[in-house]
Design a binder for these strands. Structure first.
Length: 584
RNA sequence: GCGCCCGUAGCUCAGAUGGAUAGAGCAGCGGACUUCUAAUCCGCAGGUCGCAGGUUCGAAUCCUGCCGGGCGCACCA
C-alpha cells in the first residue's frame, strides 16, 4: 500500500463528514490537498497541508481549521499523535504497530512490494535506443537504452501495460552508405586488395566479417555488377546484420524490445502516404516557402517552395517540410507516420527516449502527434544528455578515425552489465553524466553500485549464518513473515521500516513523472539506513540481528533485514540490475 | 537572432503536483574495528538556491526580464 494515499483518503473522509455536519461548505475542492512525508523526520510520519489549502474557501483561519481536523484525525486507526505546526501543517505520528504491519506486508509481497495499480493497465509505448542500424552501439546509446528500459520497468511496476519498442531507421541515405561500405568489404573478402576506405563510407572493422559472410553466401555474383543491381541485396543484408549486432549489444545489457518497426516497411505499406493524406484532409498541409532563420544564415540557404505541415498550429516554432526536393519523404514525415501507427495500435500514451542532440525535434513531433490523433495522443520525450567516459578522472580520448572509439559493448565487458545499468541511472536524464571506468568498480561507499549491492549482500550474509544456526527451513520468507514484529522497537529499526514503506509511493511518483533515476536515489537512501543499523549493532550488541539467546527477537530482525533485501531487490529489478548474494 | 535544457555547499549532485530551519556524498577536521565482512558508521564545519522584479498565507520550485553554460535551428537521420 501507498500509505500516503491511504491517509489522504482518511483526511478527505473527515472533510466530507464535516461538510455533512454543516461545519464546512459543501463541495470543497480537495484536489490541492497533499498528504506526504514531512521534510523533517522530527515532524512526524505524515503531514498534510489540508488546513492551509482549504482555509480560504472555508472562511477560517488555517490553524483553527487545522485544530478541527486534528481533533478528528486523532481517532483514525494507527494515528498515535497529531500536531499542528507552522502556518497550519497537520503532522501525524503513526503507531509502531502500523510499521510492524507494513513489514509483514513487505514480507508477504517480497520483490512484488511496491507494485501498484495507478497505471490501471493503460497501454504505454516506450520507444528507446532506435539507433541507426549502421554499426555497434556507443556509450551514449547505452544511456538511452538503460533509461528507456528502466522507465519501462518502472511503468510496469506501477501498473501500466508497457510495450518496449525500437524504430529501425532503415530507409534513409545512411543505409545506402552502409550498403556501399559492405560491398567494399565484400570485394575485400573476395580477394580484392582494399587499401583505404574512401571518404564517406563507414571504416569500421565490424563490417569485415559481414563482408565475408555475404561473400560466402553469394559468391562472386556481385563482383562485376553495377550498384543498381546489388544495392537492394546489400542494403537488406547489412541492415539485418547490423540489427543483429545491435540486438547482441542490447542483450548484453539485458534489454529486449518486444516490437521493432521498420521505417522502410512503413513506407512500403503506404503508411506515410496515409498519414500525409490524413493531414491533408485536415487542411494542415500546404505548399509554401519558409522564412530564413533569423541571425546567421546557412551558407546554402535559398528560398524554396516546399510541402509543409502546419506545425505552428500545434505549438511548434515553424512549419515543417514533409518532402525533400526530389519528392521523397523527409525523415520527419516517416517518423510522423510511425507515431500515427503507434496511436492506431492503441497507444494514447507514448514516450520516446532520444539523445539531447535531437532536442530541436521534440516540438514538431509533439505537434504531429496532436494533429494526427486529434489531441487524444500524448507524447513525452526524454532527452538523454551526453555521457563523459572517464578513466581515473581523465577523459577517455575517443576517435572513430583513429580506431580508439570505445563501444558500449567494450564498456559492458569491462565493468559488467549491472554496473553500467546502475551508473546510467545515477543522474536524471537531462543532466550530463560522468562515467568513470575505474571508480564504478571500486569497492567503496563512493561507488553507489557497490554501496547498494553491499547492503543486499550483507543481508544475505546474515541469512547464511542464520541458516546454519536455525536451519534454512526455519527462516524462509513465509516463516519470517509470521514473526512477532512487535519486538522491533528501536528507533533505527522503525526508521528502516519507514524507509521501506516509502517504496510504493516512490514507484508511483517516479512512474507518473517518468523519472527512473529516482529509484537509484531511493536505494542509496535505504541502503544507508541499513548500514546505520548494522553499525549500531557494533556499539550495542543487543541491537545485532543474530541473538543466540533470543530466538523471537532474532526472527523479527531477520524479517526486518529480509524485508530490506526484498525492497532493494525490488528496486534493482526496476533498474534491471541483479542483486548480488555476496561481495567478492 | 529564435527555441529547448541547465545554473543549489570548495567539488559532484538530490530536492514529484509551490510548504516548515534547503539535503546527501566527496574533499577537510575529529572519532568508532575482541565484527552479524570497519568494503561500514558517528560527529564537526561548510549556502545571498546565477541576478532583479512579480504572483500568495508561503517560491530553489510558478511568471517576466537580464547574466552565464550546453544543445538545436529548411531539402540529414
Amino acid at each position: 500500500m501507498n500509505l500516503f494515499v491511504h491517509f489522504r483518503a482518511r483526511v478527505v473522509d473527515i472533510l466530507e463528514d464535516m461538510a455533512g455536519a454543516g461545519m464546512l461548505p459543501e463541495g470543497l475542492d480537495t484536489s490541492r490537498i497533499s498528504v506526504e512525508p514531512p521534510r523533517e523526520e522530527t515532524h512526524g510520519d505524515v503531514t498534510t497541508n489540508a488546513a492551509m489549502v482549504l482555509c480560504k474557501p472555508a472562511g477560517m483561519k488555517p490553524r483553527d481549521l487545522a485544530a478541527l481536523l486534528a481533533e478528528r484525525l486523532e481517532a483514525v486507526e494507527y494515528v498515535e499523535a497529531v500536531e499542528i505546526a507552522g502556518p497550519g501543517f497537520i503532522n501525524l505520528r503513526l503507531a509502531p504497530s502500523f510499521w510492524h504491519d507494513r513489514l509483514a506486508e513487505i514480507m508477504g509481497a517480497g520483490t512484488a512490494y511496491g507494485d501498484s495499480f495507478v497505471g490501471q493497465g493503460e497501454p504505454v509505448n516506450v520507444e528507446y535506443v532506435s539507433a541507426n542500424p549502421t554499426g555497434p552501439l556507443h556509450v551514449g546509446h547505452g544511456r538511452g537504452a538503460v533509461v528507456g528500459d528502466a522507465l519501462a520497468g518502472l511503468l510496469e511496476k506501477a501498473g501500466f501495460n508497457v510495450t518496449r519498442e525500437y524504430y529501425v531507421n532503415d530507409a534513409g541515405a545512411q543505409v545506402d552508405v552502409l550498403a556501399r561500405s559492405l560491398h567494399l568489404r565484400y570485394r575485400e573478402a573476395m580477394g580484392e586488395a582494399v587499401k583505404e576506405i574512401p571518404e564517406g563510407l563507414y571504416p569500421g572493422e565490424y563490417l569485415i566479417p559481414v563482408g565475408a559472410k555475404i561473400a560466402d553466401e553469394d559468391g562472386d555474383k556481385w563482383l562485376a555488377s553495377p550498384e543498381t543491381e546489388w544495392m537492394e541485396r546489400f542494403r537488406g543484408f547489412a541492415r539485418d546484420e547490423m540489427m543483429d549486432l545491435i540486438k547482441d549489444d542490447l542483450d548484453a545489457l539485458g534489454i529486449e524490445h518486444e516490437v521493432f518497426v521498420s521505417e522502410k516497411t512503413l513506407m512500403d505499406q503506404g503508411k506515410v502516404q496515409a498519414a500525409f493524406e490524413d493531414l491533408t484532409a485536415k487542411g494542415l498541409i500546404y505548399e509554401g516557402v519558409l522564412e530564413p532563420p533569423k541571425g546567421k544564415l546557412p551558407d546554402d540557404w535559398e528560398p524554396r517552395e516546399q510541402t509543409l505541415f502546419k506545425a505552428t498550429e500545434f505549438g511548434d516554432d515553424v512549419d515543417r517540410p514533409l518532402k525533400k526536393s526530389d519528392g521523397t519523404w523527409t525523415y520527419f514525415a516517416a517518423d510522423m507516420a510511425y507515431h500515427c501507427d503507434k496511436y492506431a495500435r492503441g497507444f494514447r500514451s507514448m514516450i520516446d527516449v532520444w539523445g539531447a542532440d535531437h532536442g530541436g525535434y521534440v516540438k514538431r513531433m509533439q505537434a504531429a502527434v496532436k494533429a494526427l490523433t486529434g489531441g487524444e495522443g500524448n507524447l513525452d520525450v526524454k532527452l538523454c544528455q551526453m555521457v563523459n567516459l572517464l578513466e581515473c578522472g581523465e577523459p577517455v580520448k575517443m576517435s572513430k578515425r583513429a580506431g580508439t572509439f570505445v563501444t558500449l559493448r567494450e564498456v559492458i565487458d569491462q565493468v559488467g552489465k549491472d554496473v553500467v545499468r546502475f551508473i546510467m541511472l545515477v543522474r536524471k536524464n537531462d543532466a550530463h553524466l560522468d562515467f568513470d571506468l575505474q571508480k564504478v568498480t571500486e569497492q567503496s561507499k563512493d561507488n553507489p553500485v557497490f554501496y547498494v549491492q553491499y547492503a543486499h549482500a550483507r543481508v544475505r550474509s546474515v541469512m547464511r549464518l542464520a541458516a546454519e544456526e536455525f536451519g534454512a527451513d526455519a527462516i524462509t520468507a513465509d516463516v519470517l513473515a509470521g514473526a512477532d514484529f512487535g519486538k522491533l522497537t528501536d528507533p533505527a529499526e522503525l526508521a528502516l521500516i519507514k524507509a521501506m514503506a516509502g517504496w510504493p509511493r516512490l514507484v508511483e511518483s517516479a512512474a507518473l513523472s517518468h523519472e527512473p533515476h529516482r529509484a537509484a536515489y531511493y536505494l542509496q537512501d535505504l541502503a544507508a539506513r541499513f548500514h546505520v543499523l548494522w553499525n549500531k549493532g557494533k556499539d550495542d550488541a543487543s541491537l545485532r540481528f543474530l541473538l543466540p539467546n533470543n530466538r523471537e527477537l532474532t526472527f523479527a530482525r531477520l524479517g526486518l533485514i529480509q524485508g530490506v533485501a526484498a525492497v532493494i531487490a525490488s528496486g534493482l529489478r526496476v533498474m534491471g540490475v541483479t542483486p548480488v548474494e555476496e561481495m567478492r
